[in-house]
Simulated assay, not measured.
Amino acid sequence: MADMNIQVTQHTVPKKKAGPWAQTWRRFSRDKAALVGAVLLGIVILLAVLAPFLPLDDPNAVNLAKRLQPPGTDGHLLGTDELGRDMLSRLIWGGRISVSIGFFAVGIAVVFGTILGLIAGYFQKFFDTVIMRFMDILMAFPYVLLAISIIAALGPGLINTMIAVSVVGIPYYARIVRGSTLTFREMEFVMAERAIGASHFHIIFWHILPNCLPPLIVAVSLDVGWMILAASGMSFLGLGAQPPLAEWGVMLSEGRKFIRMAPHVSLLPGLALFCVVLAMNLIGDGLRDALDPKTKV
């Protein structure tokens, strides 16, 4: 019986193309600077979350016998402040407050700014004129003076500082979302939704808003660091968190009197602020590049 050679044609199965978010993550993960920023921010957030469970001294426990001890002192890895309070404990507990204020303030600004930007960009005419002129008035004030004015009206305190800083950020997000909404509201897929009788709510939140997310995500990542810095600045001026609360701005304010005698009291919270803001900027730059559709995967 003659041998029969059977040739099998191999068909290569086309590789499934990754989704847009998978491509974004792939581009982001190749950015070493962005990954460093993400790891740094992750460490800060992890320490802040685990603060109640870590073997730390009471951040407000006063021990005048050990005041202004340098870093490396027995029992005080990062030294003590002018009242003998443990600097490591105060830094970690202070990070809990400072980072939380930054994220919550950005969250408030994003929600209100996004809603106002969507309304102004989609409905235009009267809504656009009223909303954007009000945003222009807010942006006409220097952000520090506006924040100070709001805190002066509401009174000093953490909650009022968060409100003041978030109000200052609302026009920023309103302008970003309005610009994107003006672009997408005239596109074919939105026109098709209108033609089949879709409601304004459905079009705005199911079709326009998702397309506004990429620039919004980049803006948020870059703005969190600024919000943390602004809130700490208000505390430094005595308008935000109040002593003896462990907060980086308060620690900077208290430590400036001992900058020559014990520089670590001011340098450590300043370094913590620097690291968090740097991490957020690195993440923001990485996200901006990763969300750019022109970037090759």
Rank of each mutant, 00 (worst) to 15 (best):
I151T: 06
I137A: 14
V297Y: 14
I163S: 04
A120W: 01
S100L: 12
P70G: 06
T12N: 10
R30T: 03
P156A: 11
K294I: 07
A174V: 04
Q69M: 13
V62L: 04
A61L: 12
A198T: 10
P142T: 07
R133T: 08
R256P: 00
C212E: 12
A272I: 01
A219H: 10
L64E: 07
F189L: 10
L83T: 01
V8S: 07
W206G: 15
F53E: 06
V110T: 05
I151P: 05
T12H: 11
R185H: 10
P244K: 10
A153L: 14
T161M: 07
L68G: 00
K15N: 06
G155W: 09
I97M: 04
L35G: 05
S98E: 01
G179V: 03
L229Q: 14
G117M: 07
L77F: 15
P263S: 10
V39N: 04
G225H: 14
G37I: 00
G113P: 01
V36A: 12
V177S: 04
I119P: 00
V99P: 00
V167Q: 00
F112H: 01
E186V: 11
L267F: 15
A109S: 11
P293E: 13
V250P: 04
R256H: 12
I101Y: 02
F141S: 01
V144K: 08
C275G: 01
I148Q: 07
Y172T: 00
A109L: 02
D74S: 12
R27N: 06
W21K: 06
I163W: 00
Q10G: 03
A105L: 00
R96S: 07
I97C: 01
V111R: 05
R96M: 02
I97F: 01
V167I: 15
T24G: 11
D292E: 15
G79M: 09
S253R: 09
A48C: 06
I108N: 02
L118C: 04
H200I: 02
A140F: 10
L116P: 03
H76P: 00
L229M: 15
L209I: 12
Q242A: 09
V297A: 13
L35A: 05
I137Y: 09
L222Q: 13
S100H: 00
D31W: 06
A140C: 11
A195K: 12
A174E: 02
P171S: 00
L91K: 00
A195D: 14
D86Q: 09
V111E: 03
A262K: 02
P52W: 06
P214N: 14
G121L: 08
F112L: 09
L222R: 11
V190G: 08
V250M: 08
D3K: 08
E247W: 08
W93C: 01
T80G: 08
M280L: 13
L88K: 02
W93K: 05
P70N: 04
D292N: 15
I43L: 15
A33V: 10
M234K: 10
G286T: 06
V111C: 01
R260A: 14
F274Y: 11
T161Q: 06
V111D: 02
P263E: 13
S221N: 12
A2D: 09
L50F: 13
W21R: 03
K32F: 10
E247R: 05
F28P: 01
G255E: 08
I259F: 15
Q124E: 15
H200P: 05
T295L: 14
V36C: 11
E186M: 12
V190E: 11
